[in-house]
Amino acid sequence: MSNTPTGTVNADATQILGSGRAIIEMKNVDKLFGNFQALTNINMNVGEKEVVVVIGPSGSGKSTMIRCINRLEKHDRGEIIVDGITLSNDVRNIQEIRRETGMVFQSFNLFPHLTVLDNITLAPRQVRNIAKSEAEKTAMELLERVKIPEQARKFPGQLSGGQQQRVAIARSLAMNPKVILFDEPTSALDPEMIKEVLDTMKSLANEGMTMICVTHEMGFAREVADRVVFMADGQIVEVGTPEHFFDNPQEERTKLFLSQIL
C-alpha cells in the first residue's frame, strides 16, 4: 500500500518563530517499521523557548516522531540534532541527548516500587551524581511547582491520574532538561483531571520551557502553541501559528481533520 498521500506537499517545519537558536533539528528523517513507512522525510526545527504542538489523526506518526528525538525509536534515514549533538548509534551520545531531553508519557510510567520523592530524585542521583539531600531539596521545590508537595512520601499507586502525571512532569524537570517531549500527556486521564495537567504545562510554557507536545487538546494548542504542526500518514502536512492553523488552514487534509474534531 502506498503511504504517500495524494495532493499534499510534505511541508517544511524548519522555520523557527522568534530569534532563538534551534534546540532540535530534524533533517529528512525517515522511519520504517518493517515495510511500513511510519515517517517520511520529516523536516522540523524547534527553537529555544518555543512550544510546538503536534496534532493529527491516530497512526499519523506523531508519537513516533518525538520518540525518535530521544532514541526510544531508531530513525532509519536523515539526521537529528539535539542541542548541537548529532544523534548516532553511540550509547554515550544517546545518553547525553537523553539527559538534556525530558519526556512525559501518556501512561505516566512512574516507577511503582518507589515513592514520589524517589521517582523524582532517581535520575538526578543516578545519572548526574547529585547528592541525595540536594536532589531531595530540588524535588520538593518541583513538587511545590506542580502543586502536590504533600504527596512526596506516597507511592504512585496511591495518587490520582492527574497527580501521577504532574509527578511525571516534575520527574522530567528534575534533570533540568533543555526540552521536554510530551507524548499525549492527557489522553489517559479522566476528564476532570485533564485541566490540572494542562495548567501545569501552561505554566511551564509561560516560564520559557522548550516543549514539543503531541496532543488532542485543541484548546491547549490554540492557547499555548507558538506553532502547530499537523501530521498525517507519517508526513508533516501543514505548519503554522495557531491562528493560521485553526482559522485559515490551507491543505485539504487539514480542513478534513479539523472538520471532524471541531
Binding site: Q95, M103, L110, F111, V127, L181
Partner: peptide, 30 residues
C-alpha cells in the same frame, strides 16, 4: 514489567545496567 518502565528510565538517561538493577529487577522479583 511494562515496557514503559524501561522507556521512562531510558528517557532520563540512565544506563542499561542501572535500569535493570534499579527499575526492572525489583519489580520483576516482586
Amino acid at each position: 514489567v511494562p515496557k514503559g518502565q524501561t522507556e521512562a528510565a531510558q528517557a532520563s538517561g540512565m544506563s542499561a545496567a542501572k535500569i535493570q538493577r534499579l527499575i526492572v529487577m525489583p519489580q520483576a522479583l516482586r
